[in-house]
Design a protein around this nucleic acid. Structure first.
Lengths: 306, 306
DNA sequence: AGAATTTACGCGGTCCGTAACCATG
DNA sequence: CATGGTTACGGACCGCGTAAATTCT
């Protein structure tokens, strides 16, 4: 059994069982990959693939099991090389962060700013995507750290660290009638067209849940993937917005009014995820610490009633 | 990076940094191993060893980290080949069990008997040792499953399944004065010389703890690693014995009397341990199930007051 | 002096690339 | 017929074994 055979297997799966593209990706030629796969199958003595003639179209049952361990092996191998570069170039390398728009725009800047001061030679890559995509990026090791609230606990292949807790606030144009109330209720929210996150994003699941449990039917006028889009439509008068409290920015959003909603909805926990047993370089661990420090204000903001 | 390099590293450590013996163990010649290690060091760019001239005497700090991941890789690689043999020889193979004497003598027989009926072609190896040795066997993958009560939770590299709960009983020769009492107390136990397990074995830790908390000083006349030795000396009149309740056998031990002591000491939990993420073949998983079934009587025996 | 490790060198195996040959849709 | 995969073959590389040189106890 050779590492390159396993590498061929895993990239083959990532390339949807297209052997030619797998070869390209690995800087090899087609026959080499075919040979790897054949050797692996022979040595293990198990058919790994579902075939249609010569074409590979999927994994067999044992193929899936094999893939699981192959991923483990390659991930650990990557950790080994990481230990190497860690020693050769202490404060030098790449930090690949996966985050949603809201994280990248409202939460990460402070931590990244401090991080850059400490590690000016680390290249920071900010990969954006839906929470589901982020989980996949982390599992496939396309990012080192994935930050988000939803969907992260689904995978047993990831480890987590808790970063901060947050809740929602309401935003509305100046002098909107709903702003007359000090303490807003769920029922009042249902009297106006709402603008909030689409499902799968930023706590939308628990938001739906809360209305459902109260047997209330909110009018969702529009749902969007990120806070800036929501704000835009709130400004245009399409409705009132429900966004993450941390995404309201006093100085930028002086044309909007906000009201805390943490008495209505459950608190959400934002975590940082990375592949199980992944070797984290010093600056990666350091980033997690910084991120926790720089987001403490979120957990404490408006959270007296927590 | 090549698997054989990692294999050389891990066996080198197991062979106390003796390169020649490592070579023998791997059916290679010395220079081959030296080359593996040098290549690994060069590729990672990290010194892996502490050296005294040409001799290797230990791992460097990063060497330890590297070893950790190397073990992971090789363990996963072993799982891969196990998937292979599982498919080629379904009910055929080796089941390596690590157990203490007491387990092997009093608990395992029933499960092993049933197992043999179902899988006559599986070779069963019973490796005995102290709990600490068993943990090491499991971690180094010298046994597939390790059974014992103590020391198992120490290692984060092992996974556990709970099998049964047990407590102690007193054994004494016929007509020993202590047998007059129906419900024996700690204080009464201290009035006689005791014979029980040595430290590290079969719940000896919690036994000591219990006397200490009661500020009592038992007279331990003799302590032994296994139950049969204890019984022997009890028969000779050296003192009264405290053994695991499951190790009293009505038919064999008719010359001894027993009294339940589960009201005095904490219940112990016996678990089965295996290397994290180890691929368990069908018959291995099946053995765990059988073992749980065949030991249910222990958890319920005398446990009405539990 | 003997045990253990490194260096030097050559053979054999094998990995991959080229090229020609099949299969699928 | 075009895209994708297998078979066939040769060159380059490299891993391992033998043997001599070196270093540690």
């Amino acid at each position: 059994m050779e590492l390159r055979q396993l590498r061929s297997l895993t990239t083959l799966v990532e390339q949807n069982f297209n052997v030619s593209r797998t070869a390209e990706k690995l800087n090899l030629v087609q026959p080499a990959i075919s040979q790897h796969l054949k050797q692996l199958e022979n040595e293990l003595g198990v058919p790994l693939f579902q075939r249609h003639g010569k074409r590979l179209i999927g994994l067999s049952q044992s193929g899936k099991e094999v893939l699981h361990y192959a991923r483990k092996i390659l991930s650990a191998a990557a950790s080994l090389t990481a230990i190497g570069t860690e020693h050769q170039q202490q404060n030098h390398g790449v930090l690949r962060i996966g985050a949603t728009h809201t994280q990248a725009r409202y939460v990460l800047p402070a931590a990244i700013h401090r991080f850059r001061q400490i590690y000016p030679d680390v290249e920071i890559q900010l990969h954006q995507g839906t929470p589901e995509q982020l989980v996949n990026m982390a599992i496939k090791d396309h990012v080192d750290l994935a930050i988000c609230t939803e969907a992260l606990d689904k995978s047993a292949e990831l480890s987590f660290k808790t970063i901060y807790h947050w809740n929602r606030c309401l935003i509305a144009p100046q002098q909107h009638p709903i702003l007359q109330h000090k303490q807003i209720t769920l029922k009042q929210l249902c009297e106006h067209p709402l603008i909030t996150y689409i499902f799968g994003f930023t706590g939308r699941g628990n938001l739906n849940q809360t209305f459902k449990q109260a047997s209330l039917q909110p009018q969702i006028a529009l749902s969007a993937a990120d806070t800036d889009v929501i704000k835009t439509y709130v400004r245009e008068g399409l409705g009132i917005g429900i966004i993450a409290g941390l995404a309201f920015n006093e100085s930028e959003d002086h044309d909007l009014q906000q009201r805390d909603l943490s008495h209505l909805f459950p608190w959400e926990t934002t975590k940082i995820a990375y592949l199980n047993d992944k070797y984290l370089r010093t600056f990666q661990r350091r980033f997690i610490e910084l991120f926790q420090q720089e987001t403490q204000w979120i957990s404490t903001k408006n959270s007296e009633q927590k």
